[in-house]
């Protein structure tokens, strides 16, 4: 077993997801299958190999620090599930 049902529940919390009992069970089995397949990577000798995070050949990308147009407050809020007084509205954060 690579990952237990309790660990799956913990990872779900980290990812802000929740699952029913039977879903957790199914995910645990599937994640174990997939993670076992990943084991083959341990066969590769990667001593001293630099990780490749990105295939771009550029080192860094700077642009001029110029003021540019951005979205208006109305356009920014147009897709909000709930908005009030020019702000995004969310359920209460503290008890």
């Amino acid at each position: 077993m690579k990952i237990s049902r309790e660990q799956v529940a913990w990872v779900a919390h980290l990812a802000r997801l929740e699952f029913k009992e039977d879903e957790t069970k199914k995910f645990t089995a599937q994640m174990n299958d997939i993670l076992s397949y990943m084991d083959k990577l341990s066969l590769v000798d990667t001593n001293g190999v630099e990780p490749l995070a990105n295939a771009t050949l550029r080192k860094n990308a700077f642009r001029a620090d110029d003021v540019r147009d951005s979205l208006s407050p109305d356009a920014s809020l147009a897709n909000a599930p709930e908005a009030r007084g020019g702000f995004f509205q969310v359920p209460k954060v503290i008890e």
């Binding site: 990952i3 660990q7 799956v8 990872v11 779900a12 980290l14 990812a15 997801l17 995910f27 599937q30 994640m31 997939i34 993670l35 990943m38 990577l41 341990s42 590769v44 990667t46 190999v49 630099e50 990780p51 490749l52 995070a53």
Partner: peptide
């Protein structure tokens, strides 16, 4: 499923075994 896999692979204690290892093999 993929969010779960990714969150797990990046979570504390597993990063080296999964994401870092994978990025090294990606180099190869």
């Amino acid at each position: 499923r993929r969010i779960m896999l990714g969150t797990y692979a990046l979570s504390s204690g597993y990063y080296d075994a999964y994401y870092k290892k994978a990025s090294q093999v990606r180099s190869l």
